[in-house]
Write a protein that binds this DNA or RNA. Structure first.
Lengths: 347, 347
DNA sequence: CTGAAAGCGCTTACAG
DNA sequence: CTGAAAGCGCTTACAG
């Protein structure tokens, strides 16, 4: 019997076995908590492992079990976003995903993919990860073909977004239509009649589209005018919200409220309004969506729809694990919550 | 010769070898770009691998090479921080570290450790990662013994923080003393004479301590009074800054400027000042440190010291890789940059 | 330039 | 409850 005991570096399971006077197999069993090992043996092995500071080698274990117990989080940034700025909302989500992973004993790899990257650089086929969590707004059209390809390859993945029929893989997302409705109803209830919507409403941005849909429906239900001039495109950055607001101001069409499709948009728009001398909320009410940390500390504390990122992260991780275990998973929609602050004049 | 060709699932290197009519060893060499392989062979192998969508199995490769090409980012949250809130500054750093890792072909594992966790749950001894990046403010005293232990174990790690003599492992950090000086000089140059400092200055918070040291020195150099009442403890949250500011206001001691040890503190303090009816910057100038994204969109756009997170991330990753390759690494200090906005009344 | 062989450190079916 | 053995899929010294 030729045995490979490690001499220099880290101890291996054989070293533990020798010290404990058992076989290497027993060490492995003991450390994994197998019921096949007697309590006395288990204790001895665990104790010696602790003494020698032995830790099971993950590469070896992964190779043998064909499982990595690792999830990969791919964050897709909007291609127009440059520099280190990332939507704070996704960072909240990232934080809660990290915690959720820790709780279920999964490791988490993260990567900020550009939308243009080739996802072939697969995490799963290299066995780096057992599944993927996809995060990001971004151009849904381009996105879609890649999702389909992932699906064909049998990849395990969940996605944060807006659920729509016929999509590849389960989608977990906020109830964007409902949130859009609730916020618009709130503004209407405060007596606002000319409510602008700032955010791109094409299907490239399904979240925004849904929020717009909620807004649209409430306007209609309330018998208010739907003026196409009252919608201005913007992606989710302060800069874009700022520019969109300026262009709306330049139109010289009257408005008494602004609903930003995201908090970043709303915060940028707020800046433009204040610079132009508008009184917020006296003259113009403003509202956002997401409840990012900065919302409460904006120049006027921002009324917004709070997304439950903590729950979202937990559900994303839980769903992905189900998928990895070949259990059925369906998409979930998480309700948002209206958070009233100063910016809309409700108080 | 018994050969293990994969039947069902993913192809392995032997499958590629068969198709290409070469040995499995040659496939491995070709895919790693070994110069020992002829160009023609290499091309054939690469082409077939692409066709079959073959990817080298990372667990196997890691096990064989005893390297994971993975770094682990441990983010230590302040124990008092609850909920999903994480200092946005660290999130910026996280983002830039992610990018830096991608650029050098390293994977990145992340984990939000609590300060009280046992770091024994080692990333390195399990071969999950080749080294650690440590991020976080937090109680330095408790921290220190753990750092020393990491060091004794021969772990590879770099740390973001304030460099001080005799520390375990290389520290990369902002020039906190210099930043503190620069900001204080700026406030003095604007005619402010009673400048409060909000932030804990004990050695548990070395960054804050250094910023305070810069502040203190400039006050002294400028011949200004140093009134102990003008320093109030706070950790780096808006809540803490808010509470500290309130307590300062309650002291009824006059002040004409507030230097928050971090942007979060300054933003919280700003809130307290505005609620108490102070005019910012007319009556009280306010400044922060970090230049987090929210700083520009605070109720008064905040003058602050910008930290170069992009460069910081790159240096952290680069330093850690040197360490892993047993090359000498020394700590680095990155200068901050004064960013003047409305909150200090300079314009 | 290429191949055959060993071995990285585990986990687990098999046999007792 | 325990051990001996096979094997996960690679990489690389060795030999040619």
């Amino acid at each position: 019997m030729r045995e490979k005991r490690s001499t220099k570096g880290r101890p291996n399971s054989l070293d533990i076995a020798h010290r404990a006077g058992v076989s290497q197999a027993t060490v492995s069993r003991a450390l994994r908590g197998s019921p096949l090992v007697s309590e006395a043996t288990r204790r001895r092995v665990v104790e010696i492992a602790r003494e020698l500071n032995y830790k099971v080698d993950k590469s070896a274990s992964n190779l043998r079990t064909q499982r990595s117990n690792t999830l990969a989080l791919l964050l897709f940034e909007d291609p127009t976003a440059d520099g280190p700025a990332i939507n704070p909302f996704f960072l909240s989500l990232l934080a809660s995903i990290t915690r959720a992973c820790a709780q279920v004993g999964q490791d988490l790899l993260i990567s900020f993919q550009q939308l243009s990257d080739d996802w072939q650089a697969d995490y799963e086929s290299t066995h780096k990860a057992d599944g993927l969590i996809l995060l990001g707004y971004g151009d849904f059209i381009e996105y879609r073909s890649k999702l389909d390809r992932l699906n064909r390859r049998g990849a395990h993945f969940v996605r944060w977004g807006s659920a729509h029929p016929g999509q590849a893989g389960p989608v977990i997302g906020c109830d964007n239509v409902g949130g859009g409705r609730e916020m618009t109803r709130h503004l209407v209830s405060l007596g606002r009649r000319r409510i602008a919507f700032i955010g791109t409403k094409t299907k490239q941005y399904p979240e925004f589209r849904d929020r717009y849909a909620g807004y649209f429906r409430v306007l209609r239900e309330s018998g208010l005018d739907i003026d196409p001039e009252m919608q201005v495109d913007a992606i989710t950055t302060e800069e874009s919200g700022y520019a969109a607001m300026k262009s709306l101001i330049d139109k010289n069409a009257p408005f008494d409220a602004v609903f930003g499709a995201s908090d970043l948009i709303a915060i940028g728009a707020m800046q433009a309004l204040l610079e132009a001398g508008y009184d917020i909320p006296g003259q113009v009410a403003i509202a956002g969506f997401d409840d990012i940390p900065a919302a409460a500390y904006a120049r006027r504390p921002l009324t917004t729809i709070q997304q439950d990122t903590r729950r979202a992260g937990a559900i994303l991780v839980e769903s992905l694990l189900h998928l990895i275990n070949d259990e059925p998973v369906k998409g979930r929609t998480i309700p948002g919550k209206l958070v009233v602050r100063d910016s809309c004049g409700a108080r």
